[in-house]
Structure formats: structure tokens, C-alpha cells
Computed example of a mutant assay.
Amino acid sequence: MSTINIGINLQDREHIANHLKRLLADSYTLYLQTHNFHWNVTGSQFRELHLMFEEHYNELALAVDEIAERIRTLGFAAPGTYRAFVELSSIEEVEGVPEAGKMIEILNQSHETLVRTSREALKAAQAADDESSAALISDRMRVHEKTAWMLRALRD
């Protein structure tokens, strides 16, 4: 592969890529969590939650591709195994099938975790003057903040 000369030195690109790997792992873990809840939600809010969770996991499916491609653009391999995601992710796996209200609470917490992960990654991108990564991360942060707000609004 030829040398990457995009105005960001190797050390900074690696630092940003490592943050993006955590963002990717959290995003993929949340994708799986949301898809699981989409399949298994029951109760009086079934239709609303089933459809909402589907919207969320579809949006996350696109997001993980963008994040992985940015890691590759910076010159590093994107993680792509469950083992790598477990090691990198800040989001805990859920045991069993929680009731709908607990699903909402768990997803809210996971989206808020992604906001925090995004904030750390954004600092690294901004410090290296990496506007492309910063824009991607900022967009992701905005999506997760809004989704967390919407999930909080569902609580009884």
C-alpha cells in the first residue's frame, strides 16, 4: 500500500483510528442489542417498539459501515469479529429477554454510552485537525443524543 499523505501524521491517525475502533465496537454491539430487542419485544407497546427498534438498527447498520470505512481511510484495519468488539466495547451484553420497559432503559443507557464514546473520539479528531473524522463522529453523537432523548420520553 502506498504512503498515506492526507495531512495527518501516522501517530495521530493511529490515535484517532483507535478511538474510532471503540466507536465501531459500541455501535455494532448496540446494533445487535437493538436487533435482538426488535425480535423479542412483547407487550402493549409491541408495534410501536418493534418498528422503532427496526428503524434504529437499520440506521446503525449504515453507521458501522461509515465508521469502519473511516478507519480504513486512516490506514488501519477495522475490527470485524465478535471477540474484537467484546474487547473494545463499553456496552454490556444483555442476558435473557428483558421486558419492554427494561429494553427501553437498556437502549437509552447504550445510546448514552455511545455519546460518551463519541465525545472522546471527537477530542482526538479535533486535536489532530481531522475534520473528516470529527464530522462523522459529531454526526453520530447527534443521532445518539436524539435517540436517547426519544427513548427517555417513552418511559412511564
Rank of each mutant, 00 (worst) to 15 (best):
72 R>D: 06
18 N>W: 01
29 T>L: 08
8 I>Y: 06
103 M>Q: 14
151 L>V: 03
58 N>T: 14
107 L>E: 04
149 W>Y: 06
123 K>Y: 09
26 D>K: 08
17 A>S: 14
41 V>G: 06
47 R>W: 05
3 T>D: 10
113 T>H: 04
66 E>A: 12
17 A>T: 03
97 V>H: 09
94 V>D: 05
5 N>M: 09
113 T>V: 08
13 R>N: 04
120 E>K: 12
108 N>Y: 07
88 L>N: 10
39 W>T: 13
109 Q>E: 14
48 E>W: 02
136 L>Y: 09
127 A>W: 04
63 A>I: 03
77 A>L: 13
55 E>D: 15
3 T>P: 00
98 P>M: 11
91 I>K: 14
5 N>G: 00
155 R>M: 15
102 K>Y: 00
122 L>V: 00
137 I>M: 03
36 N>H: 15
95 E>R: 15
4 I>Q: 01
4 I>V: 07
102 K>L: 05
147 T>K: 13
116 R>D: 09
154 L>A: 04
79 P>A: 12
119 R>T: 09
11 Q>F: 07
15 H>R: 13
109 Q>S: 11
44 S>N: 12
62 L>A: 14
47 R>A: 02
116 R>C: 02
26 D>R: 08
16 I>F: 03
98 P>C: 09
140 R>P: 00
96 G>Q: 09
142 R>A: 10
154 L>Q: 14
69 E>M: 10
134 A>P: 08
2 S>N: 07
139 D>S: 13
143 V>Q: 12
67 I>Q: 05
110 S>F: 02
142 R>N: 07
88 L>C: 08
130 D>A: 12
31 Y>N: 05
12 D>C: 05
103 M>N: 04
101 G>M: 07
1 M>W: 04
96 G>R: 11
34 T>C: 10
17 A>I: 02
91 I>T: 11
26 D>W: 06
34 T>S: 14
99 E>N: 02
66 E>H: 11
64 V>Y: 09
29 T>A: 12
47 R>K: 08
76 F>D: 06
37 F>N: 08
110 S>W: 02
131 E>I: 12
122 L>Y: 04
17 A>V: 02
81 T>S: 15
13 R>A: 04
105 E>M: 01
122 L>G: 00
117 T>W: 07
137 I>F: 03
146 K>E: 15
69 E>H: 09
50 H>C: 05
46 F>I: 10
45 Q>F: 08
52 M>N: 04
144 H>Q: 12
15 H>F: 02
53 F>N: 07
10 L>C: 00
66 E>S: 10
137 I>N: 02
41 V>F: 08
56 H>Q: 15
87 E>L: 14
133 S>C: 11
50 H>Q: 09
122 L>H: 05
38 H>C: 09
111 H>N: 14
135 A>Y: 05
